[in-house]
Design a protein around this nucleic acid. Structure first.
Lengths: 142, 142
DNA sequence: GGTAAATTCCCCACGATTCCCCACTAAATC
DNA sequence: GATTTAGTGGGGAATCGTGGGGAATTTACC
């Protein structure tokens, strides 16, 4: 399980460290240790899928409305990049991906269970304000 | 597998480098290293097929509705060109193909699994905007 | 048919980027 | 306080993209 949020800095060469806890779950729960990183189709962030989850996504593509499929393939499947973090646990994101999430120096990692998201810190903070506002009048009953 | 997106520049002689990762998969997964490049029948791009996939396409042509077959043959099969990248991994596209994809200087390569697409960068960007807009309200359930 | 021009092909060379390794610092752990 | 671990920076080798030169081939034109 990927959970928690972490901020790391991207250096001048464009490298960012994957937070150590995420690297751990990747190593222990996902045998090949590989990550598919791609755009989120409806938010300004990237999503990282371990191989098993990536396969589930590909299966989901086959189930989605046929009209949307080519859009989804171009926007999400094609730009995906396969990573196995280097010895220092860092990855180097391709330009197209960096741009989609408007990543600058401060990069925010957010665990979402079976996958995790990669945000520009500023975008994340902004998003969070929206999220809290939307929930203002909502009472959870449980 | 061809995956990821890459932009390369076409020089004045009309040569473009095939992205190195694509050259790799071509070398390792496709013994003859040859590429059939032709127009896409329904988008403004070119599609590159390794020999094995090209054969599958030809088989598919035989299965398609008889009414469409001659159209498809003329539009897609005829204009195809066979390439084996030069020592530097470059190819020289014929004029007809270049025109169909409106290729100018910046050329975009998009991996789509067993094949890859060749786009003019500007067209690709435009297409991507459309794609993301179409997916805006779509929720993936997986 | 012969000459000139243009195109294609093959090779080399340069600059930028990427990859891989090592090292430093700060924080956490014992 | 010593040791480990995480995040970050930098150096050097290798690779990749790209430009250009010249030979070979093709095309155009007289």
């Amino acid at each position: 399980m990927f959970q928690g949020e972490f901020s790391n800095n991207m250096d001048e060469k464009g490298r960012v460290s994957i937070p150590a806890p995420f690297r751990d779950t990747l190593r222990t729960h996902h045998t090949d240790g590989q990550l598919f990183i791609t755009r989120s189709h409806n938010t300004d962030c990237l999503i990282a899928y371990p191989t098993r989850e990536w396969k589930r996504l590909q299966a989901a593509v086959k189930e989605m409305p046929a009209k949307l499929r080519p859009h989804f393939k171009r926007a999400v499947i094609t730009p995906s990049q396969l990573f196995s973090p280097d010895k220092q646990g860092r990855i180097l994101l391709a330009c197209a991906l960096r741009q989609h999430a408007s990543l600058s120096r401060s990069v925010h990692f957010a665990g979402t269970g079976e996958t995790f998201e990669i945000w520009d810190k500023a975008s994340w903070d902004k998003q969070l304000v929206t999220d809290l506002a939307a929930l203002q009048d909502f009472e959870l009953d449980m």
